[in-house]
């Protein structure tokens, strides 16, 4: 292992990691918004929109992110929708992640028994109040494990961004391997940086899951 090489290219990886993190988090935020809107539409069974959401979810869940990105980045400009690579990465991640987030939220909402709603109604709460004070707080905490799993999944998926020439960690590693043949060092740094990105949230995820599974409210 050539430590000199590692130290020399550490800043390059660091920069790439920030890019991964920035685009990843931005994409995840949009995915959360898309997921929230979709699950609300499904929960309230809004006609027409509900069917559109169903089609979107199937399309998004049954195609790879890489193909989605290729279509957005190389395909859409041909019909006049031009974006830069970063916006494209965010859009792709939101398109993919939106359906996963929607499913996570939906399973949380569905886990709340309808009689909880009735119980709130019988206290004179309206639909809005019931949603805000009774359904959402419970549904949110039920979907936390699935939500965290999705965040990890989406951060991992960002590894394909190099295919649309975003200079992320994969791009950097591939570049260095190609340029200097320092395969071991480049891959070592790649693994280390992904561990730094993913390990904390993965540990947080399993802690949360354990806490929710064994304790529940009031622990």
């Amino acid at each position: 292992m050539n430590w000199e090489f590692i130290l020399k290219y550490l800043p390059m990886y660091e920069k790439a990691a920030w890019l991964t993190l920035r685009i990843g988090l931005l994409g995840i935020v949009f995915a959360i918004i898309v997921g929230f809107v979709c699950s609300t539409i499904q929960y309230y069974k809004v006609p027409v929109l509900r069917q559109i959401v169903a089609v979107y979810i199937e399309l998004s869940r049954n195609t790879p992110l890489l193909v989605q990105l290729f279509f957005i980045y190389y395909g859409l400009p041909k019909i006049g929708i031009q974006t830069n690579a970063e916006a494209c990465g965010v859009a792709g991640l939101a398109f993919l992640g939106g359906s996963y987030m929607a499913e996570a939220f939906r399973s949380g909402l569905e886990a709340i028994e309808p009689i909880q709603t009735e119980s709130a109604y019988s206290l004179g709460m309206n639909r809005c109040q019931t949603m805000r004070y009774i359904i959402l707080p419970q549904a949110m905490s039920i979907s936390v494990p699935a939500f965290v799993a999705n965040v990890i999944f989406l951060l991992k998926e960002t590894s394909v961004f190099s295919a649309i020439s975003l200079m992320d960690l994969m791009f950097t590693a591939k570049d260095l391997i190609g340029l200097y043949y320092k395969t071991t060092e480049s891959l070592f740094l790649l693994v280390v940086f992904y561990l730094i990105l993913l390990l904390p949230i993965s540990i947080l995820g399993s802690l949360l899951e354990r806490r929710l599974r064994y304790a529940g409210f009031g622990a």
């Binding site: 009689i115 909880q116 119980s119």
Partner: peptide, 18 residues
Amino acid sequence: AELRQKIGMVFQSYELFP
């Protein structure tokens, strides 16, 4: 919702908010 305030209901399964 206003009318329901005048009608209290207690369920078999308690339905407290957990």
